[in-house]
Amino acid sequence: MDYANASPDAVRKLIRENKLIAQTSGMCNGYAQANMAILPKDLAFDFLLFCQRNKKPCPILDVTDAGSPIPHLTAPDADLRYDIPKYRIYRHGEMTDEVTDIEKYWQNDLVAFLLGCSFSFESPMLDAGLELRHITDNHNVPMYKTNIDCVPAGVFHGPMVVSMRPMKPADAIRAVQITTRMPYVHGAPIHIGDPEAIGIKDINKPDFGDASVIRDGEVPVFWACGVTPQSIAMTTKPPLMITHAPGHMFITDVLNSQLSIM
């Protein structure tokens, strides 16, 4: 199958049947992808408030009803228990499992949050002729914990995570122009240049994903990242948080153009 031009429904079907277990960058061109965080209902308001206060890393696309795995606003025929290639289970801040479905972990009080993903702005960047190194080299995008603290809300607090794409300076300017129009999928970069200025000690050792080669004449460009809730889980240690595995996103039925401000 040509995953780049496949429909979200077709790709989700393969994922649900465990026939496709892979990172989703470049799949279903034109359609928004989403990060996911699932929490018990008694923590859901605090997390909703956290997302509202930290819109760059955690822009909300959809929130399910308590106990329902159906994202009615973004993909009403989907089921979040099965339609993500790989999930992570966090208990008291520790990742205890990485699985391909969460049926046995599902509870009647769980609330799922779908958050905008930088993979969604990669299609218009590719259309503009920009190279994305992790796609060129066929690996997961590199992601890093930073020294930028998120705004606390309720029990939730901790550092922002960023994704990085190396670019020539002129391409970085074009990338800013493109992504500024897409605030629902992280918007413009939060930092360009010196990684140590945002607390990244070794650019070749990402906390999540895989390292990208930064060539001579290129600068690292950093966007707020929807893996931030996983960093928050490690910091605040809720009894249970279920997330996507980094790079293994939920593919929605929402067009990227619907999330762009023209």
Rank of each mutant, 00 (worst) to 15 (best):
A128K: 03
E103K: 15
D207C: 04
C150K: 09
R88L: 07
M164Q: 05
L130G: 00
K237T: 13
D137H: 12
I84H: 05
A34I: 12
I214R: 09
D210Q: 11
P183A: 13
P76M: 02
H72N: 13
P195H: 08
L126T: 06
L240W: 03
M160N: 14
H244S: 15
R81E: 07
T24N: 05
A153S: 13
P220A: 01
F47P: 04
C58P: 14
F50I: 11
Q258F: 12
I198F: 05
H186P: 01
V185W: 02
P238I: 04
V213M: 08
T179H: 02
K55D: 10
Q230L: 04
R88D: 09
N138K: 10
L110G: 09
D202K: 05
I200D: 00
A44M: 10
V185T: 06
D46L: 08
R12A: 10
H72T: 15
E17P: 00
T24D: 02
A6F: 12
P166V: 00
K104N: 10
D127P: 00
A22Q: 03
V161W: 02
L43D: 08
V221D: 00
R16E: 04
A172P: 08
V221C: 01
E98P: 00
G158R: 07
P189Q: 03
A78T: 10
L259M: 10
L259F: 14
F47E: 07
V111A: 04
Y184G: 03
Q33Y: 13
I198D: 03
F45K: 12
R181A: 15
F121K: 00
A22C: 01
S25P: 00
P246F: 10
